[in-house]
Simulated scan of single mutants.
Amino acid sequence: MSALDLPGYTHVYSGKVRDLYAPLDADGQVVDDQLLLVASNRLSAYDEMLSPEIPDKGAVLTRLSLWWFDQLADLVPNHVVSTDVPDAVSGRAVLVRKLQMLKVEAIARAYLTGGGLEEYRAKGSVSGVALPEGLVDGSKLPEPVFTPTTKAPVGEHDLPMAPDEVAAELGAEVAAEVSRLTRAILARGNEIAAARGILIADTKVEFGVAPDGSGGLVLADEVLTPDSSRFWPAELWEPGHPQPSYDKQFVRDWLTSAESGWDRTAGGPPPELPAHVVEATRAKYVEAYERLTGERF
């Protein structure tokens, strides 16, 4: 993944799906309190980078995050400074405050599925939170549950964290606030999305703090997108089996299908996504954006 040549900016970092650039002042010196966050069209699943890229994905996620930041503004401040960005990344980049990011993946679940379901079947709980008996794949939880994980380096897997581990990493007060905000964001998201025919099963959010430690938690990165959340069509929700989705689950399902032929336990790279999977994935992202925001993409 090669960095773009953006006049007035210098490349700082490339993650799985995002690139960071630092703005330069008139003397060519780095402006150290802001970053340009560029969403690429890259897609990852099962901690693997996939190819080819998904057209328009970066723009869909950026526009959807900006829409959600507005819906959540009364719950938590966010990192957005400006959407006035270079033409080369117009529509898929945001100028943001530079934050010190918390070293915990803040995840909340409103419905039981995925890794949470596996843990529930084994222990009757998720991340140490005891749940009622008799839940199945797709069951709605009594209330959103905070299920944090570690933030693993690229190529390694995130691991579940117990409440005491989160408190040890962040301090008890910050850990409690991260839990409260993560669950509140998912609850607000579902209030809004359910009226538009989408259930948000779970979501991952990122928080940071000002480098000098002043102020409280700031919502960063992306929020309530098909990349960071599981979106289900409400009219098709039926507990007892995996649900159809608007998110990366579509790609995950193909990767583990007989058609892909990929054995993810063998350690080899995943296969190229066929054109029909790329097109359907783009369509899922766009449909989710349009249903939620009421805007044409």
Rank of each mutant, 00 (worst) to 15 (best):
R109K: 12
E53R: 12
L66H: 04
V81R: 14
L66W: 07
K123C: 05
D164R: 05
T113G: 15
Q100C: 14
S82V: 05
A162V: 02
V85P: 04
A167T: 09
Q71W: 10
L61G: 08
G128R: 02
P77N: 02
P55W: 04
D158L: 01
M49P: 07
E169L: 14
P77T: 01
V60E: 13
W68F: 03
T147Y: 02
M49V: 15
A106N: 12
A122D: 15
G58I: 06
D164P: 03
S51N: 11
K140I: 09
P148C: 02
V154A: 11
A122Y: 04
E48Y: 11
E53H: 14
I107E: 03
S139E: 02
V76D: 09
V126Y: 03
D137L: 02
T113P: 07
S127I: 02
T113I: 07
V89Q: 13
P86A: 11
V96S: 06
V154F: 11
F69P: 03
P77E: 12
A73L: 12
V136R: 07
V76G: 14
Y120R: 03
R109G: 10
A110D: 10
L131Y: 01
Q71N: 14
P52T: 02
L66F: 08
A162F: 07
V80W: 05
V154C: 00
D56N: 12
D158S: 03
G124A: 07
P77A: 04
V81T: 04
A110R: 10
G128F: 00
F69W: 15
A168H: 09
E118F: 12
D137W: 08
P144N: 00
D56W: 13
G128N: 00
R121N: 12
P160D: 02
D87W: 07
A122M: 08
L112E: 05
A167Y: 08
L50C: 05
L75G: 11
G124K: 06
M161F: 07
T150N: 01
I107H: 03
S51T: 13
A59N: 08
V145D: 06
L95E: 09
S125M: 10
S44L: 05
P148H: 09
P86C: 11
L102I: 12
P163S: 03
G128K: 02
F146G: 01
T149V: 01
L112P: 12
R63F: 02
Y46W: 11
G155H: 06
L64V: 09
A59E: 15
L102T: 03
P144F: 06
M49F: 10
R109C: 09
N78T: 11
E143V: 11
L64P: 12
E133P: 10
H157V: 15
V145Q: 04
L99Y: 13
V96P: 12
R121H: 07
L95N: 06
S44M: 05
G155Y: 00
L131K: 00
R92S: 14
K140Q: 15
G114Q: 08
A59M: 15
G128A: 01
H79R: 08
S127T: 07
D70V: 13
V129K: 06
M161C: 00
Q71A: 06
D47G: 10
L141I: 14
V76H: 13
A168C: 04
P142I: 08
K57E: 04
I54A: 08
T150P: 00
L159F: 00
I107K: 04
V129N: 11
S65D: 05
T62M: 13
V96Y: 11
P86R: 13
P52C: 01
P132K: 11
E118N: 14
